[in-house]
Amino acid sequence: MEVAVFDTYVKKKEGGYLHFDIIVNKATSFEHVLKYGNTYLQSKKTEGLSLSHKNCRFCHITETIPRWEVQIKQQGYYIHELEGC
């Protein structure tokens, strides 16, 4: 399965950034990518933070790995936490 990787940076209120990738099936709409990112932010209890087209950008297409594929099939996306998460 080929997946699209979206590089995401969200500025935290206390300073610094949440940096994570949103990984989805390559046919997923950008609106869904933003929805998935906002769902992730809510799960992290980050009140007042939201995702928009300004802080989420398409990065590249790649082959999936088993860990991502399982979660993408279950919930539509996989979050790869990078910094500040």
Rank of each mutant, 00 (worst) to 15 (best):
Y17N: 03
S50M: 08
R67W: 08
E81K: 06
K12F: 10
V10A: 01
L41H: 05
V10Y: 00
I22T: 01
S43E: 07
Y9M: 02
G16R: 14
H60N: 11
Q71M: 14
E47T: 03
K35V: 06
E31R: 11
G48Y: 11
F20D: 00
T62Q: 15
G16T: 14
L18I: 00
E2M: 01
S50D: 08
E63K: 14
E14N: 11
I79S: 00
Y40N: 00
E63N: 15
K54A: 09
F58E: 15
S50N: 12
Y36A: 09
V70S: 12
L34E: 02
V24H: 01
K12E: 11
K73Y: 08
L34I: 04
N25V: 07
F20P: 00
E31W: 06
S43W: 07
E81F: 02
K54C: 06
V5P: 06
K45F: 03
E2N: 01
A27W: 11
E2K: 02
I72D: 04
E83Y: 07
H53A: 12
Q75E: 14
V33H: 05
A27T: 15
I61H: 13
G15L: 02
S52R: 06
E14C: 01
K44W: 05
C85R: 02
H32V: 05
T64W: 02
K13P: 05
K26I: 10
S50L: 04
K35W: 08
I23R: 12
T46F: 00
F58W: 12
V10I: 14
T64M: 02
I79Y: 00
N55V: 11
K11R: 15
S29Y: 13
T62P: 14
M1W: 08
Y40M: 01
S50C: 10
Q42W: 07
P66R: 09
K44T: 07
N38D: 14
Q42V: 13
K54T: 08
Y77L: 09
Q74T: 02
E63G: 09
I79D: 01
D7E: 12
Y77N: 12
N25I: 10
H80T: 00
K11G: 01
H19A: 10
G48Q: 09
L41P: 02
G15P: 09
G37F: 11
H32C: 06
I65Q: 12
Q42Y: 09
L34M: 02
Q74F: 01
A27S: 15
V24C: 01
Q75W: 06
C85G: 04
L51N: 04
Q71S: 15
D21P: 04
I79P: 00
T39W: 10
K26C: 03
C59I: 05
T46P: 00
K13H: 15
F30D: 09
V33Q: 06
T28C: 07
K12T: 12
L51I: 09
K13I: 05
A27R: 13
